[in-house]
């Protein structure tokens, strides 16, 4: 049994450190009418919903993250780099089987 909360926090730190990642967005679908900032820019870390979600399903572990990318780097390569970073995490490698690792680029700027 994997401690998903600790793993999520661990992965969040790793994803933020990937060059070209400018922001992390909440992975849960959000209502457009929520009042209160939910964007967590790298510079202003505040309490926020899970920015990397980790869940255990019958097919294995699923990881999901939504990122913002700076336009000086290719969004395609940054997303692959983020994937590689998550896949290379020791906890992920130890937590076979892996179902999916999702990386969604939600903004480029």
């Amino acid at each position: 049994m994997t401690d998903t909360t600790a793993l999520a926090a661990d992965l969040e730190t790793a994803v933020r450190a990937v060059p070209g990642v400018s922001a992390l967005y909440p992975t849960a679908p959000l209502l457009a009418t929520i009042v209160g900032a939910v964007v967590d820019a790298i510079t202003t870390r505040t309490v926020s919903p899970a920015l990397v979600s980790v869940s255990n399903g019958h097919a294995g572990l699923s990881v999901s993250t939504r990122i913002g990318v700076t336009d000086t780097q290719s969004a395609v390569s940054v997303s692959r780099l983020v994937y590689d970073t998550i896949a290379a995490n020791p906890a992920i490698r130890a937590a076979e089987p892996i179902d999916t690792i999702s990386v969604t680029v939600a903004s480029i700027d």
């Binding site: 969004a75 690792i101 969604t104 939600a106 480029i108």
Partner: peptide
């Protein structure tokens, strides 16, 4: 990788076009 699900959102592409 068969595990990978990589996406860019339509909204991000629109933002890119605007920029």
């Amino acid at each position: 990788s068969a595990h990978a699900r990589l996406f860019v959102t339509e909204g991000a592409v629109r933002g890119l076009v605007r920029a």
